[in-house]
Design a protein around this nucleic acid. Structure first.
Lengths: 339, 339
DNA sequence: TCACCTATATGAAACGTTTCACTAGTGGCA
DNA sequence: TGCCACTAGTGAAACGTTTCATATAGGTGA
């Protein structure tokens, strides 16, 4: 409770207040004997530096914040772990905040983070769009890096994954395996990621020597349940109409489709091949291991943090960059079958 | 960058510095006209309160920290969301820190959180044991609530789930369904949760009118893969030796067992019934929906945060409490079958 | 011996708030 | 009129650091 402060430590050690501060911040300026006296006093009194005061006077913070859409989404947890590694390596601390896709909670968090004068901010904003709220951070000298959202902005860095290519490669893979009726399961199509994946796949198929259509099965959400319902629609089509392969906008849908089709007596991949997206932990562990488009999630977090720290250090000379990662198709049993 | 401060706001609005502070903290003390002038100045200058200075002077923080073992574990993400709701309701901010089960990272986080003088700490320590490090927080007046770890300590509150009962109910359910050869899949048995679940189940079976044994299949970890390997062991036993039901220490194992048994041509639940633990999102969505023991995860987080805030407010009169929640058995197809 | 270094240590100022004792004005009441 | 109570606003002190200009003491070379 006594919450010893630096002054008491100084008195206890029989030195001046400034010397204690030097022991803490530039130990090489202090003679070894004195340093030891001070360190002893610190342990004896259980002194712990008051970060508020330090930050107030020094004008800089050592905590970096990451504000994500959903703490329980494996995508973000992996991004967080990547960012964490970099920030801690640099001697800082990463704090995680959760907007839960709610603009008001996002707002609240941004307000408090700005009050705290964090060293920097990694953020996936709830809505694509202008993000003028974030400009306040930049104006205050707090660097902001956008994660997996609208890049191309000139006043901040961004990292993202190329969803167009992700869709493209999934579709090309299926076409190469000889499939001619291919479906896309996903929605709502207003989500940028879903739209991009769909568009990439559709473009890839249209660009082939013998162009193919991409049959769209929209879903109300990206859940296992929605996948099962989509499977019902697919399964009830006549055999000559039914797609022989489907590409799903994420793995939850794909798992649902897999279960639904199996329940209808259709075999995967013999009757219908499946490719998912995200390569979540369960994709490889499904009854039929699932092909999926893997995103370099941890890498995304690492790079975002690196860009942030770089901007935070190189005061002035920093050039904003927009890094786009390429996803990778992981082929497993659910689509590894020639027709 | 100018980072306007309260003094500049005061000058801009033509009032004293103290009045601005009053507008911010006790608006009712200020005449409406003055208040408006100040608010206008604030927006005009883009003033944002400096939380370090506020905290330094006021001596209290409004951020609560939760330090978890693994941000990507669904158990903890749900706990976080529960705690978040309560803290934000109270006008505070919850920051999430991740120890990744690494004692050194835990230590680093605790050091920084102590320097920050957070309002309170929710924590699942890496090791059961003495946690003397946490006493420093308590001594400094920072309340600590233990989450899902060693309760019974007199200087802090704790919340936990009764794993003994969880194991007991799973086993009783299987016995009531007529199973006489029951297996337990799980490990390492040194993990307190695993040991409790096993012990609860074993005790329940031993206490029956016609006592039953619990056959132990230890696994090196709690993963899907480990479950599949356990399934190999189970499946290769002679039909008269093989358990007709298995209780798994968590759902990942259970999913692995399900897949493994299916691969061996055994039917679930007809040949072998399965009960898992945790009731993760995928449990109900598996090929055969999985019975599982559900923990009130969000409730755990909510209660932990409530205890913390209560202690934080009621200075002095607070009585430490140890809340133990009861888990709940969710019966689905994987075990809903009479022999 | 003196002037000049270097290595150490000092203490006051400043960071941006909150709080509190205080002043000034206003109106009610005897 | 004189007194009191009340409301609105003021400004200085304090919170615990970091930083910087300065002081002190040996030591070195001329």
């Amino acid at each position: 409770m006594a919450a010893a402060n630096i002054k008491q430590v100084a008195k206890h050690a029989g030195v001046s207040l400034g010397t204690v501060s030097n022991v803490l911040n530039r130990p090489d300026l202090v003679a070894p004997a004195t340093r030891q006296k001070v360190l002893d006093a610190i342990t004896e009194l259980g002194y712990v530096r008051n970060d508020s005061a330090r930050q107030l006077r020094a004008g800089r913070s050592r905590t970096v914040a990451i504000l994500v859409l959903d703490v329980s989404n494996p995508f973000f947890t992996d991004v967080v772990r990547g960012a964490e590694a970099v920030v801690e390596e640099a001697g800082g601390m990463l704090i995680v905040c959760n907007s839960g896709e709610d603009p008001r909670r996002e707002q609240r968090h941004l307000d408090m983070l700005e009050e705290q004068r964090v060293q920097g901010l990694l953020v996936t904003p709830v809505s694509d769009g202008r993000h003028s709220r974030l400009d306040a951070f930049v104006k205050r000298g707090i660097p902001v890096v956008l994660v997996d959202r609208g890049s191309g902005h000139s006043s901040r860095c961004s990292v993202a994954v190329d969803d167009l290519n992700g869709g493209r490669w999934a579709a090309e893979h299926l076409a190469e395996r000889g499939h001619e009726r291919i479906g896309f399961v996903g929605g709502p199509i207003t989500i940028r990621q879903v739209a991009d994946r769909h568009h990439g796949a559709a473009t890839a198929l249209a660009d082939r020597d013998t162009p193919l259509d991409l049959q769209l099965f929209t879903t109300p959400s990206l859940s296992v349940d929605a996948g099962r319902q989509a499977a019902d629609k697919v399964a009830t089509l006549a055999a000559g109409e039914r797609p022989t392969a489907v590409f799903c906008a994420n793995d939850l849908l794909a798992l649902g489709v897999l279960q639904g089709l199996t329940a209808h007596g259709l075999r995967v991949p013999e009757d219908v091949a499946i490719v998912g997206y995200d390569d979540i932990e369960f994709a490889g562990a499904a009854t039929v291991p699932l092909s999926s488009v893997r995103q370099p999630r941890a890498q995304l977090g690492r790079t975002a943090a690196e860009l942030l720290l770089e901007e935070s250090m190189n005061d002035g000379s920093h050039q904003h960059r927009h890094v786009v990662f390429q996803p990778e198709l992981v082929i497993r049993a659910s689509s590894d079958h020639y027709r």
